Lab assay of single mutants.
Amino acid sequence: AEKTGIVNVSSSLNVREGASTSSKVIGSLSGNTKVTIVGEEGAFYKIEYKGSHGYVAKEYIKDIKDE
């Protein structure tokens, strides 16, 4: 049951290796980017990222929809 969301930041949002603010940053997404959410862990969504997965803070994702 995948969902999509939109990155809701003015600059960019860090994509992390794990569901923690201390996890390594593996990339970033600019505002209004559409993401595919494959799961959630605590305050983070697990998303599809560059052929693999990454984690982003839930508070910066809006317009969550079921695909």
Rank of each mutant, 00 (worst) to 15 (best):
D66K: 07
S52R: 10
D63W: 09
S12G: 13
V35C: 04
E2K: 07
I6M: 07
I6K: 07
T21C: 07
S20H: 12
V35Y: 02
K3D: 03
S23F: 05
E2F: 06
G51C: 06
K62M: 12
S11W: 08
I61G: 01
R16N: 10
G54D: 00
S30A: 15
V7N: 03
R16C: 05
E59S: 09
E59Q: 11
S30Q: 14
N8T: 13
I47L: 02
V35N: 00
K46G: 02
N8V: 14
F44L: 02
G31E: 10
E48L: 11
D66Q: 11
T36A: 08
G54P: 01
I61D: 01
E59P: 05
G18L: 14
I64M: 08
I26S: 02
T4F: 07
G31R: 14
Y49S: 01
V38P: 00
F44H: 03
S12Y: 15
V35Q: 01
S11D: 15
I6Y: 09
G39E: 05
S12M: 13
I64L: 11
A19M: 05
L13H: 03
G27A: 04
E40A: 08
T21Q: 13
I6F: 06
I6E: 04
G42W: 04
S20Y: 12
S10G: 11
A43R: 08
S22K: 13
H53D: 05
K34D: 03
Y45C: 03
K46N: 03
V9K: 09
K65R: 13
S22D: 11
S52M: 13
E40R: 05
A43Q: 15
S22R: 10
H53M: 09
V9G: 11
I61V: 11
N32W: 09
S23Y: 04
G31L: 12
T36F: 15
G42N: 09
K34Q: 10
V15Q: 00
E67V: 13
I64R: 04
V38T: 09
V35W: 01
K50R: 11
G39A: 08
K24H: 09
I37F: 01
Y55W: 15
G27Q: 02
S10T: 13
K34Y: 08
A43G: 14
I26P: 00
V9I: 12
S12R: 15
I47Y: 00
E67H: 15
G39Q: 04
N8L: 07
E41D: 12
N32F: 10
A1M: 13
K34N: 06
G18Y: 12
S11F: 09
T33L: 06
A43S: 14
Y55L: 01
E2G: 13
Y49H: 05
E41M: 11
S10Y: 05
H53K: 06
T4R: 09
I37S: 00
S28M: 11
D63Y: 11
S10I: 14
G18K: 12
G18P: 01
E2Y: 06
K34H: 09
S11K: 11
E2R: 08
S30R: 15
S12E: 15
G51D: 12
E48C: 08
E67S: 12
K46I: 13
G18Q: 13
I47S: 00
